[in-house]
């Protein structure tokens, strides 16, 4: 079935999303939960870059190609850049929260974070 293969990047994106969600729901360690969130977010890279790809298209850098050449979509690539930077700092922020949660409660299990104490 060629049609199934034609949607393969979208399937991979959905699968990555599913894996990340699975990791988040069944997580027993906060660091594991943070990394699961990173996996979940990486599905957006796959989806957006898959949408922007074009058969026979080249990179949208016009140093040595003419502006009329067929290229892949530069808009989603610019979005990717934003996505990756935000993911990096969000993971840093969440890991800082994990450190604090461990300091306060002495546990890294998400199920031990039931109550908020001042």
């Amino acid at each position: 079935m060629p049609h199934v293969l034609a949607s393969l990047p979208y399937f991979v994106a959905g699968w990555l999303f599913f894996c990340g969600l699975y990791g988040l729901t069944t997580s027993r360690h906060l660091v594991h939960a943070v990394i699961s969130l990173a996996v979940l977010q990486s599905s957006t890279y796959m989806l957006l870059l898959g949408i922007g790809y074009r058969t026979g298209g080249t990179a949208p850098v016009f140093v040595d190609i003419s502006p009329g050449r067929l290229t892949v979509d530069p808009v989603v690539q610019a979005l990717m850049l934003t996505d990756i930077v935000v993911e990096a700092v969000v993971v840093a922020l969440l890991l800082a929260m994990v450190v604090k949660a461990y300091e306060k409660s002495g546990s890294v299990s998400p199920s031990d974070l039931r109550t908020l104490r001042g």
């Binding site: 790809y53 949208p60 850098v61 290229t71 530069p74």
Partner: peptide
């Protein structure tokens, strides 16, 4: 299907970026 991109914006910017902004990297121009 994958590889059959139909969005107009990316193509428009790819064609116009060198004329409009004199920049050769479309991604950074965006």
């Amino acid at each position: 299907p994958w590889g059959d991109y139909r969005g107009p914006y990316g193509d428009f910017i790819s064609r116009m970026v060198v004329y409009q902004r004199h920049a050769t990297d479309a991604v950074n121009a965006i």
